[in-house]
Write a protein that binds this DNA or RNA. Structure first.
Lengths: 208, 208
DNA sequence: GGATGTGAACGACTTCACAGCG
DNA sequence: CGCTGTGAAGTCGTTCACATCC
């Protein structure tokens, strides 16, 4: 099988989620057109995406919901559970620790870290909070793969340095700043300010 | 001036943020190369982006930090403050209400809404919480432009319908589901699960 | 006939190579 | 020279048109 483009992977995760819902609703088949309606994409795009995983649909009938879900999950996620650690148990960090959708999707936050003595030793939503100095050991012991940065901007780079040397394979960065990490460790920035402002710019442009 | 591509706009917001920091550090000029280092982009990309706003740099010297910041802000944001309303004062919603970076960047959350009677009438970080039924009136009175959906998945579509008929011009959707809105209202999905899993997929792929 | 699957055209964005200028 | 600015080439992703199959 060829290399799947990143965008296709992202949409595939969306298809998996949609298929789960359809399966729960006892639907045995679904067409690309219906998937398009639900996801807000086009039917061609969906067929193109799915075709990268092989010929799995049947003309005139569509895709088997269960079969397609399994194919996508096997190929994309390999049925693993993703172990995650989080840095920064502030407002945003706590909200992430309590985010209810992760368990359903094989994401497990296995530890949190903060510099605040008052928080260390506590549990939030069952997840223990440790001192930052303990991070490397716990990351290895709990087989964490992804690190989440939810600390204030000023502290982000320090944390990123810690992460990079602890064996984590990827970073989600909520801090509103670019962080420097060694090549080979992918970073996903989730920057609320940028999202809000760029949406606003788009609105301004459309109204001339 | 031509139409600025969306990606360029997003990066321009990043440049503005970086320039502010440089200005605070009393730097009068900066080269595309240095901006590239700080932001993690390439210098060519930065010159290309900036050139869409006119010829503002001087060869051999670089860009004037203050001048460039003003040009970008004027063109992109038009020096407005963006008024935002938020739906869903749960863990994530509360964290967004308390997010400290918004004020610095001309984003102002002017009201929040929740269906929970216990929360209505309270203030969080100075932002009042109202009943959802009050949304259309308050959105108009406070000139809100963007609505944020931070409610559970099941409630997201209902809220989206409310938003669309209240005169809001754009939506930020944190709920892990696609929402249907009338054409002409742009939606930005910020989907934690998708971000985590697609990062993980990329990691899996790179390690074969 | 009505759906999937796909090479080809198209479009958007990035990178390259180099012109221009202080 | 060193840095900006930019047309051209290249890359990536989407859309189209149509062949294919039950």
């Amino acid at each position: 099988m060829k290399n799947i483009p990143r965008k296709t992977v992202e949409r595939a995760l969306l298809y998996i989620r949609t298929l789960k819902r359809l399966i729960k609703a006892k639907r045995s088949h679904v067409s690309s057109k219906e998937l398009a309606q639900i996801t807000g994409l086009t039917d061609v795009q969906i067929r193109k995406d799915i075709s990268s995983f092989g010929k799995v649909g049947t003309p005139r009938i569509g895709y088997k919901t269960v079969g397609l879900k399994n194919i996508l999950e096997d190929f994309i996620l390999q049925r693993n559970t993703v172990h995650v650690v989080l840095f920064g148990v502030g407002n945003l960090g706590s909200a992430i620790l309590r985010y209810p959708e992760f368990q359903k999707d094989r994401i497990k936050i296995v530890a949190a870290f903060d510099k605040d003595e008052a928080k260390i030793g506590k549990k939030i939503n069952g997840i223990p909070v440790f001192a930052i100095a303990d991070a490397p050991g716990i990351i290895k012991k709990r087989r964490a793969v992804i690190g989440v940065i939810a600390v204030p901007r000023e502290a982000a780079q320090d944390i990123a340095d810690t992460l990079a040397t602890s064996g984590l394979k990827g970073i989600i960065n909520f801090a509103p700043t670019s962080i420097n990490v060694p090549a080979g460790i992918p970073v996903r920035d989730i920057d609320f300010t940028i999202e809000f402002l760029s949406l606003y710019c788009g609105i301004l442009r459309n109204h001339h």
